[in-house]
Amino acid sequence: MKVKRTELTWWERLYLPTLINGFKVTLRHFFSWKRSEVYGDKQKEFTAKTTMQYPEEKWDVPTGYRGAPYLVKDVDEKTKCVSCQLCEFICPPKAIRITPPGDSGVVDREGAEKMPEEFEINMLRCIYCGFCQEVCPEEAIFLLEDYAINGETREELIYNKGKLLALGGADKRAYNHHVQCDVDEGIKKWETKTREAGEQPAFH
């Protein structure tokens, strides 16, 4: 089907009116007394200014913001990811690449069986959709608050396991989630399991 475009008048083709309209909006904001809600506390002391001195000033990231995906650690500062590769599978732009550990399991704690040998996220590819966070059965990957991802080379922007874990850290959000759901035992899943197994009555 062909859609017929409407012809622009010469006045419209001049683009000046549109330009002026744009400036009008800018100026209205410039002289506005109303503070933007987006910048919240950062601007408490100012009365009129709505422009922020980025990057010296940073805004408060609202809850639910989907920033860069990082790997988080558990309360014992140990890796949570078990290399199930579901995020790799679900990732629409194929930004995630996991190297499974092989028979050795590459584990950093007793009771665990499997962790990734390598975990890479290509931040250039990532579209911040949050599927990885949603699909993760271990709650090991979260879209945290980082939004300014930059680097000088493409290689630099492929984050590896070490970097992702360091950036994710023992994340409060992951921890809070467990506490909110009243499963504080869950964050010590391996410990709980080992304890239960020890308490089990032997047969006979």
């Binding site: 199930c84 590769q85 599978f89 499974p100 092989g102 028979d103 050795s104």
Partner: peptide, 12 residues
């Protein structure tokens, strides 16, 4: 199988 253990998820 030890040979296939933790090598690759089967859906790939």
């Amino acid at each position: 199988s030890d040979d296939f253990r933790f090598q690759m998820r089967v859906w790939f």
